[in-house]
Design a protein around this nucleic acid. Structure first.
Length: 599
RNA sequence: GGUUCGGUAGUUCAGUUGGUUAGAACGCCAGCCUGUCACGCUGGAGGUCGUGGGUUCGAGCCCCAUCCGAAUCGCCA
């Protein structure tokens, strides 16, 4: 025991091996000798009696030391502090006073042999589920954070989910294929992470944003049904639901159309719901068109667990003299509102905050009307005629106790977007409980979208997406009318996945490239290998990619991807534990032929 | 790049109008304690108030700049 008093003096594992995980010890083991390994959650020294809560990834069990314990074992138990690593052997016995709060609370281990395998400094924060320690500190010591049962549980759940996914695709005839991490950069869309080449100085690989082209080429290769849990990378700003590297459940199938691809995704979701949540998902999932969801909810990925639909009240106010409204209308804009049912309780302060938020989103601001006792009030009320007020009230179904949030904008797209954002904000201001699941498809997405800055048409999905046949006739006449043969799966207000049927007609593909402003030369340089491949017999195919991290986050009931990712990055895309990215020695840069500005 | 919030002990926070030696809880250390499980009791240690500058007789507090973290808008084919 003397040897344990020095700072780093510890014992060797030797032949000692565990027989059980801590969380597995229960009444069935009473009377048996067991051995466990883990970390000291807490040591309670009562004098002649010591208890240690031993934690491993499966749970916690109580170790007991008393007058029956051998003196040297008892002496070691006295030295144990938080997060010491222990091996303990002993006999399981019933506790004289039980603890109903933990699964192993009826039993304890009367320890006969104890080894201190490692000591620990006092950890920078207490390792419990209900820690209030800020996330940056926890992320710096992520290995300690991950000892918290809630995170361990999330990572185990993630593994369970990936096991089911692999089995599901296997059963449906898909084979998992690894596509390269070092690929050709395609500067469209999200920014690529670039990897310099030492052998080809001045040339760069990119990390994949998605295995898109490789999976399509796998279809040309005749592999027929491909899937992969694919690591993807995007050099864009982070969010709670966006990490720069993430995992996509990626699949592609040949001789299949939209319905086939969607059916596979629905089957997967149904199985995950059944096996993870124990709930039956009713199939097929509801479908809404892009136009429907954006009109009604101001978003292409609305959360439908609550209402707060957008109502167009342009007609009711078409002759208004209230300047902010009449000005918007005279410039071809519109006026829309959301009826916040029961919103009367919103204080002026929180309504002003909503207006500020709307301004932050690019709107001119938000106005509001309240109704209580049959009276319509609010600063806006005196600027409208009683006819206008009653017309608006009727259109928006304004009733006692409600508040109407009203926006007027020249730019109709902005108007919808901001109302969509306000809708989400309102749901939390009103304390709306989001119960159940909101899982549905969005279809008939526009094929092109107008880039407001450049004024050019860009592909909303990606340039390999097939146009919906019935709208292909507008390709040359009116781009805004062309719809994509694409489908997004939306789950509780997040875009879970998106997919499409791909273009397999080389002539059409060339046409799309040219409509997107790519010259023949450019498209050959960027995607020539794809069009070349398509000359040698390409099967009709389509597929999709589902965000694994987002899916796990939802199924785990977590609020952030960081809670379901073992070693996540923070908002500025750095990792606090290893402090990457970091500078590298000049000699390394030299090998790559790279000179930094300012060198 | 914009907006908002935050940064004071290991952790979570309080800190009055700018005024003596910057406090609390938990944690930590020591002693006591045989049924605890957020053990208890007694005592103790622990601070570059994110950083730099400014205003002032005097700054944790006011001003400017900057760094860091978070939410969010832009961005994310």
């Amino acid at each position: 025991m003397e040897k344990l008093k020095g700072k780093y003096m510890v014992e060797l594992l030797g032949e000692s091996r565990r027989t059980h995980y801590s969380g597995e010890i229960n009444e069935n083991e009473i009377g048996r000798t067991v051995a466990v390994c883990g970390w000291c959650q807490r040591q309670r020294d009562l004098g002649g009696l010591i208890f240690i809560d031993l934690r491993d990834r499966a749970g916690v069990v109580q170790l007991a030391f008393d007058s029956q314990t051998k003196a040297d074992v008892f002496g070691k138990a006295e030295l144990v502090r938080g997060e010491y690593v222990l091996f303990a052997e002993g006999v399981v016995r019933e506790r004289s006073s039980k603890n109903p709060n933990i699964p192993t609370g009826n039993v304890e281990i009367a320890v006969t042999n104890l080894k201190i395998l490692a000591k620990s400094e006092t950890p920078p924060f207490e390792i419990t589920d209900d820690t209030s320690t800020s996330e940056d500190i926890r992320l710096k010591y992520r290995y300690l954070d991950l000892r918290r049962p809630v995170l361990t549980k999330n990572l185990k759940l993630r593994y369970e989910i990936t096991k089911i996914i692999r089995d599901y695709f296997d059963k449906n005839g898909f084979i998992e294929i690894e596509t390269p991490m070092l690929i050709k950069s395609t500067p469209e869309g999200a920014r690529d992470y670039l990897v310099p080449s030492r052998i080809h100085k001045g040339s760069f690989y990119a990390l994949p944003q998605s295995p898109q082209l490789y999976k399509q080429l796998s279809m040309v290769a005749g592999l027929d049904r491909y899937f992969q849990l694919a690591r993807c990378f995007r050099d864009e700003d982070l969010r709670a639901d966006r990490q720069p590297e993430f995992t996509q459940i990626d699949y592609e199938m040949s001789f299949a159309d939209m319905e086939d691809v969607m059916k596979i995704a629905e089957g997967l979701m149904a199985r995950l719901f059944r096996e993870i949540l124990g709930e039956e998902l009713s199939l097929p999932l509801p479908r809404y068109t892009y136009e429907q969801v954006t009109d009604r909810f101001g978003s292409d990925k609305p959360d439908l667990r609550y209402g707060l639909e957008i109502v167009d009240i342009t007609n009711s106010l078409k002759n208004t003299s209230f300047p902010p409204f009449s000005k918007a209308l005279s410039c071809g804009g519109g006026i829309k509102c959301i009826n916040a049912k029961g919103g009367e309780k919103l204080t002026r302060k929180s309504l002003d905050a909503l207006s500020e938020y709307a301004k932050g989103c690019g709107a001119a601001g938000a106005f509001y009307l309240k109704m209580s006792g049959g009276e319509v009030s609010g600063p806006l009320a005196k600027h409208l005629t009683s006819d206008e007020i009653s017309s608006v009230s009727r259109a928006a179904n304004l009733e006692d106790g409600d508040a109407l949030i009203i926006l007027a904008e020249e730019n109709k797209a902005l108007l919808g977007n901001v109302l969509g954002l306000l809708r989400t904000k309102l749901a939390s201001s009103l304390g709306i409980k989001k119960e159940g699941h909101s899982l549905f498809w969005v279809v008939e997405m526009p094929f092109f979208e107008l880039d407001p800055e450049s004024g050019e048409w860009a592909a909303m999905h990606h340039p390999f997406t097939s146009p919906l046949e019935s709208t292909a006739c507008y390709l040359k006449t009116d781009k805004s009318k062309v719809k994509a043969k694409a489908y997004d799966l939306v789950y509780n207000g997040i875009e879970l996945s998106s997919g499409s049927v791909r273009i397999t007609d080389p002539v059409l593909q060339e046409e799309i490239f040219s409509l997107l402003g790519l010259s023949e030369e450019e498209s050959r340089q960027k995607f020539g290998y794809l069009t070349l491949a398509f000359k040698y017999g390409v099967p009709p195919h389509g597929g999709m990619g589902l965000g694994l991290d987002r899916l796990v986050m939802q199924l785990a009931g977590a609020k952030s991807l960081r809670d379901v990712t073992a070693f996540p990055k923070v908002q500025n895309a750095s990792e606090l534990m290893t402090d990457c990215p970091s500078e590298v020695p000049g000699t390394l840069l030299g090998d790559l032929g790279i000179t930094l500005k300012g060198d």
